[in-house]
Measured scan of single mutants.
Amino acid sequence: MKVMIRKTATGHSAYVAKKDLEELIVEMENPALWGGKVTLANGWQLELPAMAADTPLPITVEARKL
């Protein structure tokens, strides 16, 4: 699914347009965010693609819901 990742004042957030859902990312498998699992505030887990740590945000990526 397409997910937009952006930086907020409190960390990172994910927006899933198909579900009209925006949630804070509360847990990251990798400190650089990319190439691992993230957990959203509502409990969803997404697998993000591997990208460079300095990838500019906001960005829309293809993520997989676990």
Rank of each mutant, 00 (worst) to 15 (best):
residue 21 L to P: 02
residue 56 P to H: 09
residue 14 A to V: 15
residue 48 L to V: 02
residue 63 A to D: 01
residue 20 D to M: 10
residue 30 N to G: 06
residue 32 A to Y: 14
residue 37 K to T: 13
residue 54 D to G: 10
residue 11 G to C: 06
residue 51 M to N: 04
residue 18 K to A: 15
residue 22 E to Y: 11
residue 57 L to I: 06
residue 40 L to K: 00
residue 27 E to R: 10
residue 10 T to D: 13
residue 21 L to T: 11
residue 19 K to R: 13
residue 16 V to T: 04
residue 3 V to H: 01
residue 52 A to S: 12
residue 46 L to M: 08
residue 48 L to W: 01
residue 56 P to M: 11
residue 11 G to E: 02
residue 7 K to A: 10
residue 8 T to Y: 08
residue 59 I to Q: 10
residue 31 P to T: 09
residue 25 I to Q: 00
residue 17 A to S: 12
residue 66 L to C: 09
residue 42 N to F: 03
residue 35 G to T: 03
residue 6 R to S: 14
residue 52 A to L: 08
residue 36 G to H: 04
residue 39 T to R: 10
residue 57 L to N: 03
residue 50 A to D: 12
residue 8 T to M: 07
residue 48 L to K: 00
residue 35 G to M: 03
residue 55 T to F: 03
residue 3 V to Q: 00
residue 25 I to E: 00
residue 63 A to C: 11
residue 58 P to L: 06
residue 50 A to I: 12
residue 14 A to F: 09
residue 45 Q to W: 08
residue 28 M to W: 14
residue 50 A to G: 07
residue 3 V to T: 03
residue 5 I to M: 00
residue 46 L to W: 01
residue 18 K to P: 10
residue 6 R to P: 01
residue 37 K to N: 09
residue 56 P to Q: 11
residue 62 E to W: 15
residue 62 E to V: 14
residue 4 M to H: 08
residue 45 Q to C: 12
residue 42 N to C: 09
residue 62 E to Y: 14
residue 66 L to A: 08
residue 12 H to M: 11
residue 11 G to K: 02
residue 19 K to T: 14
residue 38 V to C: 02
residue 17 A to D: 10
residue 8 T to D: 07
residue 26 V to H: 04
residue 16 V to W: 15
residue 64 R to K: 13
residue 10 T to R: 13
residue 15 Y to M: 09
residue 17 A to W: 15
residue 38 V to H: 01
residue 52 A to C: 06
residue 3 V to Y: 00
residue 19 K to M: 15
residue 36 G to L: 04
residue 37 K to L: 12
residue 17 A to F: 15
residue 2 K to E: 13
residue 34 W to H: 02
residue 46 L to Y: 07
residue 64 R to H: 10
residue 28 M to A: 13
residue 61 V to F: 06
residue 16 V to G: 01
residue 25 I to W: 02
residue 35 G to Y: 04
residue 64 R to D: 05
residue 8 T to H: 10
residue 63 A to V: 13
residue 30 N to K: 11
residue 22 E to N: 09
residue 2 K to W: 14
residue 55 T to I: 07
residue 22 E to F: 10
residue 65 K to R: 14
residue 14 A to I: 15
residue 39 T to P: 01
residue 43 G to A: 04
residue 60 T to K: 04
residue 17 A to Y: 15
residue 10 T to C: 14
residue 32 A to T: 14
